[in-house]
Write a protein that binds this DNA or RNA. Structure first.
Lengths: 232, 232
DNA sequence: CGTCTTATTGAATTGTCTCAACATGCGTGG
DNA sequence: CCACGCATGTTGAGACAATTCAATAAGACG
């Protein structure tokens, strides 16, 4: 098992704080917050069109979310690292709009939002938390859109690697070597590139001395150079 | 001045309904909902990094939202048609993340959310409306991301035209001929294409008999063919 | 240890961009 | 109201980036 994110650095923390989890554990109704369920590699925590129940926080490991496409390969819509949320998009509708699958041995906390509503908690407080979650989702997607569409393959990969590193850092996972748990095809699908292109560019970045890559272990050697690549 | 959207088909309607606007007009605090301000072509209703105050609904005409880029051309991030909202992305932060500019003679309703908070209205009810707005924003962006990145230029244009038509239809603007109020460059910037490519593909679609285009007047002749193009 | 999946690398093809010339429409001022 | 000038749109040719197809290499997993 990999390192867990500490609670105060987890994206679910605002909600947990609202629930005063920890301080007054007895106040939380039974079965609203489920802590640290292990999920094995390849397992799904929900599938597309399952009825929406919970928002999950990645406690350790990582996940991909994707829309299954029977004919062409699945379409990856996001990666979820340690400390990040999965499923907040389901808030908008009745159903999960995609499938979430563990990329490695992982563990999650589960917040059962449907139970929360009937739990006697102040609706106003809960809503404030939800607005918070949705807001950051909107912001993130917005940046993604305006960047992805206009960037070359090099820029997308550089930006992707930086974003991984920054997101891990934000949640306290500061490590020289990042584990690239997703496949080249997954990255390609997410960034709108062929998996061969991903491969080619990764080796190119390595030859340029910006990164060091061995198997699935990534080390960012020159973040400045990557940033320069991604921005222009 | 063009046709106005009727209130019950406007995206702001959920909020207006919550405020019981119309029924009990006197209940709404002064200056919270401003109705139908005219906006002339080229005018902005807010600019990037202005402090967030209001969400706007397009009552007539159309707008583009964009991030000004001094060096390269501005980056268009959205078009807002009759009946749609502008500025809900500002909810997530303190500032508007982009500029909103009228593409033609238009008019807007303005909902001053900051005043609303101090207005004595039940916070719970207001929050419910906000969650509604944010949710649909998230859903829309999500579909946009997963489609745009993987599509060819033809597909993007076809999808774009269909989306315009569907969005106008949704808000009661059913007309055989759609007014393409934005420039080819704007479309290109939004879809991540060169303006020349947009032009070329539009004439191609016309030669194929899928659309009829003259100046800025668009008529969709074969929506089925367009949809088939966009999906594959 | 062998098989099956995943990754890398090469060569040819396709699509989109860039640069450039030309056409058209629009708004302005005479 | 017309004519002019500038912005916007169209079209063509060459360059380049990314894809596809294909063959090989390397890991992962049972």
């Amino acid at each position: 098992m990999h390192t867990e994110v500490s609670c105060d650095l987890c994206a679910l923390d605002p909600m947990c704080s609202i629930l005063e989890y920890g301080a007054n554990e007895e106040k939380i109704p039974e079965g609203v917050l489920l802590r640290c369920r292990p999920v094995s590699r390849g397992e799904t925590i929900f599938r597309k069109d399952d009825p929406f129940r919970s928002v999950f926080a990645v406690k350790s490991g990582s996940f991909k979310t994707y829309v299954p496409k029977p004919d062409r390969g699945d379409q990856v819509v996001g990666f979820h690292l340690v400390g990040e949320l999965i499923g907040s998009e389901g808030l908008s509708g009745e159903l999960y709009p995609f499938t979430a699958r563990a990329l490695e041995e992982s563990s999650v906390c589960e917040l059962r939002l449907n139970r929360l509503a009937e739990s006697g908690y102040e609706l106003e407080t809960i809503q404030k938390g939800i607005i918070q979650l949705l807001s950051s989702e909107v912001t993130f997607n917005h940046e993604l859109i305006s960047s992805l569409v206009h960037q070359s393959a090099d820029q997308r990969i550089a930006g992707f690697l930086l974003s991984l590193s920054q997101r891990l850092l934000r949640h306290g996972m500061q490590q020289k070597s990042i584990r690239l748990s997703m496949s080249r095809s997954d990255i390609g699908s997410y960034l709108g590139l062929a998996s061969e292109t991903v491969s080619r560019i990764l080796t190119k970045l390595q030859k340029s001395g910006f990164i060091h890559l061995q198997h699935k272990n990534l080390e960012i050697l020159d973040a400045t150079a990557l940033a320069q690549l991604a921005d222009i």
